[in-house]
Design a protein around this nucleic acid. Structure first.
Lengths: 351, 351
DNA sequence: TTGTACGCGTTATCAC
DNA sequence: GTGATAACGCGTACAA
């Protein structure tokens, strides 16, 4: 047995391999980076030596020598929201495609902290940055010395990937329109301002309503910090809708499945089942839309594709930088991913 | 003015600062690591130089020089399960407490891939590893050259943090017993084997039932890869329970809130509300337990504390390694976190 | 209190 | 096809 290498086991380096095989450090390096430049015999010799010595590669040293960390920084607002955790999930999974590792920070809504995080990330020589939090302006992000891609946030001065929110609004409103609702209602949060991509949902909804001359209404609720707060504000909305439009068929497009579910629960708890004069469409295709007591129709964001596009957009720019004469992007690239309408029982109820 | 450093802006190094200020590199280094060893005047001079030159620290170089990466590796099974994403969330948040950065990989259930991930992590000189996936045995993990802490998985040969699952089972069963149920049922997944911490839930449940001589029953369902599969297998269970124990008061302890919610939904869809002869307790305190049409009583794992304990346990061991004469742990440390029983409407219904 | 010289493990640039 | 040597940017004895 090799016996236990007790205490601090010194790591095996190129130097050790070189001495062991009689080659130079350079040749060992070449074995890893340009194996074809060695004779097959010599490759074999080194290959065996690696096993004999139990060599483990040291990426830190490589980074110092050539500057490529293969690190991408990620700043994400939180992970309570399924949308973000799923996005992070998909981002991490692109490791298989591109080989980049991710350093993740949770942005806590404070500008200064977030700047600190970015400095820390830069100190590790990350090669690119993905930003999902919205505390820092794209103008500021664009000034960073590395490529930046944002996801679903204000993106005027940087490249980005967003859902086609307008299309989402159109899809939702059209579906409700097809069900011959007497009144279309869209519920969104008060902080959905025009510069946010999510604002497109409102425009899409309104455009369809106006185009088809449908009776409609827009309701803003506070975002709310907790589930209970959301429940409370939606409780009022529910009671008002339920009484004001009594007897009318109501088509409700709720921006966010969590809120759609809350509304649905109010209905079920009041009526024991989903009344026929209610049709509901959510947004996000988050787990709750599937797990709800009546599965909720929803506009599904293609999170997997968005994550992939974000990373690949970043990789393109990072690759460009490695060239002799890099041609940086003159204009930010904005990729838009079409959402997918998912019909479930809150619109397709079989009675 | 320094003018715009065009093209590839060379990074400012200690050498540049040294030349600029007239000090040596060493003094600059000391400024960062032992500022008190410089006179206040000289600190001031260097401090100003940093601003003038717009110096950005380079952690990679520092790592190479002293070996401390401040990286912790994390291997997590997936992020679809809220439990994992929340745990990751909390782990990432410990950055504020300990300053360690996390390199995260998603274990995909294949031993070889997971070993590859670990090698990659080691290549980056991570100082410690947190493992939540269960593909690799603790025996194998214990052989790694760095400290390892597992969370809620088989942990015989490594340090770990687990929920007190036994206590959780006891709490759930006791609560149901207090409601004078005629039959206590525990639903768990078939893969919950004795070496898994989660097995304690079963033992706790059984012990209470036997101690109080309660009519009880244990039902195993397949884990299921999708929500639909879970729904299907639980559908059968539901129909059987509903007919077999008709007229009896049923106390059901479901291992996992997602499954508890599915069961609840079957009830609501059949009866329009939660019948009085049903009492349900879930496990995990995941969002669905709160968002369900009838909020579900559940045994809540203290994920924040578990994450903190895991990281701090790791940090202790990593700190120990930096000492002259490190005294490695002779025996793995197992920290156990007590779960908290959360009573909601599925047991405390006000009619 | 400050400086000199070397080491960390790899890659890049020349030679041969 | 292979080797010597100099970077890469910082930490750390040891010396002054």
């Amino acid at each position: 047995m090799g016996s236990a290498n007790n205490g601090k086991k010194k790591k095996v380096t190129f130097d050790d391999i070189a001495k062991y095989t009689g080659f130079s450090k350079t040749t060992i390096s070449r074995y890893f980076n340009f194996p074809d430049s060695l004779t097959l015999d010599n490759q074999e010799i080194i290959s065996n030596a690696l096993i004999d010595l139990d060599y483990k590669e040291n990426k830190v040293a490589r980074i110092l020598a050539n500057g490529k960390t293969e690190f991408i920084g990620v700043i994400i607002p939180n992970m309570l929201n399924h949308y973000y955790s799923e996005m992070l999930n998909r981002i991490l999974q692109t490791y298989g495609d591109f080989g980049y590792k991710f350093l993740v920070f949770l942005g806590n809504e404070q500008e200064e902290t977030e700047r600190k995080y970015i400095q820390e990330l830069l100190a590790y020589n990350i090669e690119g940055l993905i930003v999902m939090s919205f505390t820092l302006s794209s103008e500021e992000l664009a000034k960073l010395p590395i490529p930046v891609v944002t996801i679903e946030r204000e993106d005027r001065y940087v490249s980005s990937v967003n859902t086609d929110n307008y299309m989402g609004g159109v899809q939702a409103a059209s579906l409700l329109a097809r069900h011959n609702c007497d009144i279309l209602v869209h519920i969104n949060t008060a902080d959905t301002t025009p510069e946010r991509p999510a604002y497109g949902r409102i425009r899409g909804f309104l455009d369809i309503c106006e185009e088809k001359k449908l009776n409609h209404r827009l309701i803003y609720v506070e975002r709310g910090d907790s589930f209970e707060e959301m429940q409370e504000s939606l409780g009022e909305v529910f009671r008002e809708l339920d009484t004001s439009y009594s007897g009318m068929k109501k088509g409700i497009f709720v921006s966010g499945d969590t809120r759609a579910n809350i509304l649905l629960n109010f209905l079920i708890r009041k009526y024991g089942s989903l009344p026929e004069d209610y049709r509901i469409v959510g947004f996000d295709d988050s787990p709750i839309s599937r797990e709800a007591v009546i599965p909720i129709s929803t506009v599904g964001q293609q999170i997997d594709r968005m994550a992939y596009e974000a990373v690949s957009l970043l990789v393109e720019q990072m690759d460009e930088r490695r060239k002799r004469k890099p041609v940086p992007l003159q204009e930010p690239v904005h990729r838009v991913i079409t959402p997918i309408l998912i019909r479930r029982e809150t619109t397709e109820q079989k009675n």
